[in-house]
Amino acid sequence: MPKFLVDNKEIEAKQGTTLLKACLDNEIYIPNLCYLEGIDPPSVSCRMCFVEIEGERQPVTSCSVLVKDDMVVKTDTPAVRQLQRTGLRLLLSVHHVDCKNCQANKKCELQRMAKFLKVGLKPKGLERHLREIEIDRSHPFLDYYPNRCVLCGKCVHVCREKNGQSALTFSKRGFDTVISFYGVRDLSTLECENCSACIDICPVGALALKVTGAEDPTTA
């Protein structure tokens, strides 16, 4: 089993483990959003889990590095923190910050990272780019909040794991990218009603069970 140093702490992990997982398992927190064991190759899309490894010229994403013997890793260097803070600020600039009315309040990955990295939830100096649609209600059992979504893709993955194919998909491109449920009118092959895999995995509460009964006050 490879042994290596992370922040001067000796860690041991099984061959083939990603550096990120090894750190998280040993209670060394590295901010991350899109990493999920089983997504292979890792999507490396959130650009948050940077670390510095001795011998590398610049910080690298720890979810895409496998553990090696005698690695010397630093998770808390100015360069790493700057990348993470900028990444988080950019994520927050396209995020509708309304924690009080959000189901993920207090268990939100963005809140956790903001606290950890000491970044305000409403960062100054960046333009706000919110999508026009606040809630996508096209799914019979789920609601999707594009302005909360960080596009980590975990929901797409877990749905595919559970159902063989994913009812969720990325659609469009660039700033307009959203998760969409296109074509799920016929759910006979899917058990969305009894499966909340996508809701449970969402780090930011962008997916929620439909509010039944009383009219949702957030409806415009």
Partner: peptide
């Protein structure tokens, strides 16, 4: 034999 959502995802890209 893939989901409509997947076709849509590719097409919108």
């Amino acid at each position: 034999e893939i989901f409509e959502s997947e076709v849509y995802g590719v097409a919108t890209f």
